[in-house]
């Protein structure tokens, strides 16, 4: 069984709990943390690659703990034609996937660091960030 990529989003109240530990211990799941991010308000996003017999039970456990689980089938991309390098997204992107080259101040996007939170889709003033399914 090949690993599936999923995005977990959790609020501050549960980011302290050892939920990932339970996934391994109670459900025998093998996981690989692709990306993890917890912002100052402790709202976190994590991208996991997950395999194991009890995959569905594991997901049900996560949901029972208040974690939002979503398959990672969406991808955020930058439309370079539209992006004006204004920079408005760069202090908001939680992972630094959108960042400024200094001192040129050109904005760049590194898809490997993106956790598909889609915040940039809302804050980009010229709609240069797009989601692909």
């Amino acid at each position: 069984m090949s690993p599936k990529k999923i995005v977990l989003r959790f609020g501050g109240d549960i980011s302290d709990k050892p939920i990932i530990y339970h996934l391994a211990k109670d459900y025998d799941l093998v996981f690989n943390i692709v990306k993890a991010n917890v912002d100052p308000q402790k709202e976190g996003t994590m991208v996991l690659e997950l395999t194991g017999e009890k995959y569905d039970q594991g997901l049900a456990f996560l949901q029972s703990q208040g974690v939002k689980v979503q398959p990672l089938t969406e991808e955020v991309i930058i439309n370079k034609e539209k992006c004006t390098s204004c920079g408005a997204c760069t202090a908001l992107c939680p992972t630094g996937a959108l960042y400024l080259h200094r001192p040129s101040m050109e904005v760049d996007f590194n898809g490997d660091d993106c956790v598909v939170c889609q915040l940039c889709l809302k804050v980009c003033p010229v709609r240069a960030m797009e989601v692909r399914f």
């Binding site: 204004c86 997204c89 101040m105």
Partner: peptide, 11 residues
């Protein structure tokens, strides 16, 4: 505090 522009310096 992290600082970011809203005005495009490259443009």
């Amino acid at each position: 505090v992290p600082a970011a522009p809203l005005s495009s310096y490259p443009k």
